[in-house]
C-alpha cells in the first residue's frame, strides 16, 4: 500500500510541478507576448500567409 501511495504522490507532484514550471518558463521567455508573431510562426518565405498548401491530387492550382 505504501508503494502505491508513493507512486501516486510522486507522479502527482511531478506532473503538477512540471505544469507550474512550464507556465513560469513561458511567462519568463515571453511566450505570451507577441501573439501576432506567434500565430504567424508556422509560415515562412516558401509557404507564406495566403498560400493554400493542399488540394486533391491533379486538381490543385500549384504555383
Amino acid at each position: 500500500m505504501f508503494l502505491v501511495y508513493l507512486v501516486i504522490w510522486a507522479f502527482t507532484l511531478l506532473a503538477g510541478a512540471s505544469a507550474v514550471w512550464a507556465l513560469a518558463w513561458a511567462v519568463q521567455t515571453g511566450q505570451f507576448r507577441d501573439f501576432r508573431a506567434g500565430a504567424a510562426s508556422i509560415f515562412d518565405e516558401g509557404e507564406p500567409v495566403g498560400r493554400v498548401t493542399d488540394a486533391f491530387p491533379g486538381e490543385g492550382k500549384h504555383p
Binding site: 505570451f32 501573439f35 501576432r36 506567434g38 500565430a39 504567424a40 508556422i42 509560415f43 509557404e47 507564406p48 500567409v49 495566403g50 498560400r51 493554400v52 498548401t53 493542399d54
Partner: peptide, 16 residues
C-alpha cells in the same frame, strides 16, 4: 487549418 488555407489562427491568445 491555418497551414492549408494559408491564414494564421484567428485568435492566438484564445488558443493558448
Amino acid at each position: 487549418i491555418p497551414k492549408v488555407i494559408g491564414r494564421p489562427v484567428h485568435s492566438y491568445h484564445l488558443s493558448l
